[in-house]
Design a protein around this nucleic acid. Structure first.
Lengths: 204, 204
DNA sequence: TAAGGCGAGAACATTTTGAGAACAACATGC
DNA sequence: GCATGTTGTTCTCAAAATGTTCTCGCCTTA
């Protein structure tokens, strides 16, 4: 896997310019535009940087073709927990900027009181929580009606369900999000909350 | 494992600066920047500290290269993109440990080639992607059948759908995951891939 | 005093960057 | 098809930036 750290400053700048250019124009830039974009005047130098990025595996070129740069599906990463949030996507116009929101901060997920569990089964599928997803849980022993919680039943059985009190708190309902499954009712003393769902993650 | 206690004050300061610099910039600092960062003005002195850290086993250098400093297996937990993965959750026994897997690493999500978009609408609901979720997208112009992609149609309309070629690549199908919606077929030239879905995040 | 950590800066080697000429390949209009 | 301008490619030369090595001097402390 290519490593951005191996690039020189100008090579990194060039790669960033190409990505931004494509995101903005939907077509790749020509060498002249790259040169201007990174603050130089020589097409030859721009070509040298492009070639370095090809060698490093970040892009490929349709040799000779005008605007023949393609981004490859490479995966570079760093240690930050903040992602640029480009906008909304839907059936609609090109990605629409969201006013006042330009990044998503996941630091909430990484607190000391949090942990992750792998979800198994389809009991919450109508809440968009699927088999194999990762649920982010905050350690917590109390919950409000409507929270999705990790509940331990009779000290033996753990499950992820929507939480609801009934009979003034004497009973607790654990409600799946799957019409094929039924909600379960327990005496409050049999149920212990282990944590509340605060997030959900899926990797493809 | 090298022992920080053996370092002099300035060497420890230098190491800390390098770690913070890389965390903040994703690339290593140059000697000039290290010098300024630790409050001196001489590249030569900065180099002396760097060399001491190499000898002590904390870092290594690509000799001669600009920004050629690499951190070695720095024990630390300053990787804030990793969560402990406690186990599977299901209707079953108390949270079950997963053999061979004890944390989930989200660094994949934070590359410079990635961005996030807010999902609007229910067209992918059966894939567990709901209105309001955040989709993590990697810039990329090519996709394989089955990938979920951000596609720009006729240069005007952007959408998140499953990608599939047909008629030997002359046509492209964009398939929603919602039984109330129908798949769409376009000539390949009308569809431009803007990125591939690599992850999905939801906050409660 | 002797030894070691620290800082400045000169001198040199190497890498990185920039300009531009010359040519080849491509795209477009006729 | 051909002519023409544009764009990509290759090359040389040079300058700037960076890494490396070195000497000198200051200070603290055993």
């Amino acid at each position: 896997m290519p490593d951005q750290q191996q690039l020189t400053d100008k090579q990194r700048l060039t790669l960033g310019f190409i990505q931004r250019y494509i995101a903005a124009h939907t077509v790749p830039p020509k060498l002249q535009e790259i040169a201007e974009g990174i603050g130089i005047s020589s097409r030859g130098v721009a070509h040298r940087y492009v070639q370095a990025l090809v060698d490093a595996g970040f892009i490929k070129t349709d040799s000779g073709k005008h605007r023949g740069i393609r981004l490859l599906n490479v995966n570079t990463h760093n240690n930050e927990s903040i992602l640029p949030l480009l906008g909304k996507i839907a059936a609609g116009k090109p990605i629409e900027a969201i006013p006042g929101e330009d990044q998503i901060d996941l630091r909430d997920f990484f607190g000391d009181n949090n942990f992750a569990v792998r979800v198994q089964g389809d009991s919450m599928i109508e809440a968009g929580i699927m088999d194999g997803d990762t649920a982010i849980i905050r350690f917590c022993e109390t919950a409000n009606d409507g929270d999705i919680v990790v509940a331990l039943i009779d000290e033996t059985e753990t499950t992820l369900k929507k939480f609801k009190r009934s009979h003034r708190g004497r009973y607790i309902k654990l409600i799946p999000a799957n019409k094929d499954m039924e909600e379960m009712v327990y005496e409050a003393s049999r149920v212990r909350i282990q944590g509340i769902l605060i997030g959900q993650i899926r990797k493809y």
